[in-house]
Nucleic acid binder design. Structure first.
Length: 259
DNA sequence: ATGGTGGCTGGGCCA
């Protein structure tokens, strides 16, 4: 089973490329972030045509997360689990697909260390941990995938000097991510890949992709039972290249194969 | 190089 996370940066603008990628790669479960679609604007019919069920948590033209699956899609929960302070934005959706509880998450960017949005980011990650505590056990089959807007280690950014006093690498947010992982989740990409400077996002500006100026901020975290079944994890950097089917997202799909 | 590009829009804001 292939579980994939992909921040598509507007499913409206990206639909032809997403359809093409699905047709070529046939993921079993695709966790989508930044649909930028209102709740009722998700292209369910187009996903059905490709052989997928779909669930969307949308919010006007910003944020928006979705799950599409060809191995079942049940127990859909929008926002954090009941009992957790609900988020005001559409940034997390959870479902059961192929026996695994999967969440598609779009962690707030943070903007800058002194911005209110940074405190929102830390609070959001604290509630993500509470969501896990409330909705599953460490011994369950669970995958949390998405755009975390955090590079877990220094080797996950192109140049630490470029990130002095910046978000995505700061100690408090890395600690907040570690607190989520302390539920019992591991960064599955690192089970299989030890090399430095492998990225899942590159800025649109300044030719960042061609300069290799990126970050690895899109993660697939899994509980031990899923991690034990994992066969590999790859990042499809080809999806960042120009194609006839439209402009690329600034993020690329991250893929986890589970046996 | 305090710029640059892309997506929301319909003038800037956000990433």
């Amino acid at each position: 089973m292939h579980i994939v996370t992909w921040n598509v940066n507007s499913l409206k603008a990206r639909l032809p490329r997403v359809q093409e990628w699905i047709s070529e790669s046939h993921p079993d479960v695709l966790l989508i972030q930044e649909t930028k679609l209102a709740q009722d604007k998700f292209p369910h019919a187009e996903m059905t045509e490709l052989g997928y069920e779909s669930a969307h948590f949308g919010q006007g033209q910003w944020n928006g997360v979705a799950i599409i699956s060809r191995v079942g899609l049940d127990n859909v929960v929008q926002n954090f689990a009941p009992g957790i302070e609900p988020d005001g934005e559409a940034r997390i959706i959870t479902a059961t697909c192929g026996g695994i509880q999967v969440s598609s998450v779009y962690v707030p960017n943070g903007r800058s260390l002194d911005h209110d949005h940074y405190q929102y980011k830390l609070s959001w990650l604290s509630r993500l941990r509470a969501h896990l505590d409330a909705s599953c056990k460490q011994t369950d089959d669970v995958v949390v995938g998405g755009d975390f807007n955090i590079a877990p280690e220094d080797r996950d950014v192109y140049d630490m000097k470029a990130f002095a006093d910046a978000t995505h690498v700061s100690v408090p947010e890395r600690d907040a991510l570690a607190n989520v992982c302390n539920f019992g989740l591991t960064d599955t990409f690192r089970q299989f890949n030890d090399e430095d400077k492998v990225f899942s996002w590159w800025d649109y500006r300044g030719g960042a992709f061609h300069k290799g100026h990126g970050m690895r901020i899109d993660l697939l975290l899994a509980t031990p039972s899923v991690a034990a079944r994992a066969k590999g994890s790859v990042i499809d950097r080809n999806a960042r290249k120009e194609r006839d089917s439209g402009k690329p997202s600034d993020h690329v799909p991250v893929i986890l194969e589970v046996g």
